[in-house]
């Protein structure tokens, strides 16, 4: 990839993971190098954990005028491995482009499912972020992987924007990016296309929309299994539980259910891991444990 053509990036993350900030850092770094660049988000419902998109365009010498979203990216970055099974992240990815994935799996493991006519880059950014930042927020860490895999921006160019944005927390973020830069593994393109996620999104025509956009079938939210948004999960220690039901009352998702024996448990398909139940439980029955562990 070189800067003589516009390089287009599409970032896949979740609300709160910092995909938008990642895109901003790339654009600011490119601009600092004297290039032309843009970064912009595509927000859906503004909620933590929901899939979000962010975009970049970078060119060495020509101002970027296009304002529409990136549909044929040169670079796709996936901040959250959970997205790989629910979103077709490879949609529109150009030949000889780059797919950068944050995953604890090794490159050889991932090649089977994600290698295609593009370069496949993998780094365990969550592990690095936990070590360097103490939290599983991978946006700055993934910048290092992207710079390594794409090669049109210097790693040092990120320092200024990261310092500006993160202030006192900048050094650990810069360290995390550098570690990711060093640890990123890259596989060259292959000729075969991998199996893609089938996203069945049927949108209504204007004639099919009911007056006032009324939704008449209740429970349609059930199809959105929000459980894959979480990074922490509930662990109940029933030896202290008094079956008061406060967890059930406070759960904003309504995903805590009472079992026949009177104890409560959360439904893993919908629990977003917010931890409100753990905070409200008067007997400290519930603790939030890391999903990955």
């Amino acid at each position: 990839m070189n800067g003589q053509q516009t390089t287009e990036f599409r970032w896949h993350g979740r609300g709160g993971q910092g995909a938008v900030t990642s895109a901003e850092m790339i654009a600011l770094a490119a601009i600092e190098e004297g290039k032309f660049a843009q970064a912009f988000p595509s927000f859906g419902p503004e909620r933590r954990g929901a899939p979000v998109l962010a975009f970049n365009r970078v060119h060495d010498s020509i101002p970027i005028k296009i304002r529409s979203g990136v549909t044929n990216p040169d670079v796709v970055v996936v901040l959250d491995p959970g997205l790989l099974t629910i979103i077709d992240v490879m949609a529109g990815l150009k030949e000889n482009g780059v797919l950068v994935i944050n995953s604890p799996k090794s490159l050889s493991e991932l090649k089977k499912d994600y290698s295609g006519p593009w370069n496949l880059a993998v780094v365990d950014a969550t592990k690095i972020a936990r070590k360097e930042l103490g939290v599983p927020i991978v946006n700055t860490t993934m910048l290092g992987a992207v710079v390594k895999a794409v090669g049109i921006i210097k790693l040092e160019s990120l320092n200024g924007p990261i310092k500006e944005h993160f202030g006192a927390r900048a050094p650990s973020n810069i360290t995390a990016a550098r570690e990711a830069y060093e640890q990123t593994q890259i596989a060259p393109p292959v000729k075969t296309m991998p199996k893609r996620v089938e996203v069945l999104e049927v949108l209504p025509s204007w004639q099919e929309i009911l007056p006032g956009c009324v939704v008449t079938s209740p429970g349609s939210a059930k199809q959105y299994r929000t459980g894959d948004w979480r990074s922490k999960y509930t662990d109940f220690d029933y030896s202290r539980c008094i079956k008061c039901g406060l967890c059930y009352i406070f759960c904003p998702e309504g995903c805590i259910e009472q079992r026949p024996d009177g104890y409560f448990e959360s439904n893993k398909y919908y629990c977003k891991g917010c931890g409100i139940c753990a905070t409200e439980c008067p007997k400290e029955v519930i603790s939030m444990i890391e999903e990955a562990s």
Binding site: P45, S205, W206, I209, G212, C213, V214, V215, P218, S220
Partner: peptide, 23 residues
């Protein structure tokens, strides 16, 4: 039960407005 006044993301809003205007 029904849902009234739901969210209309960019992939629905235009159709909603077209339907409303024709109506």
């Amino acid at each position: 039960p029904v849902t009234l006044g739901a969210f209309g993301p960019p992939n629905v809003y235009t159709e909603a407005k077209k339907a409303q205007e024709v109506a």
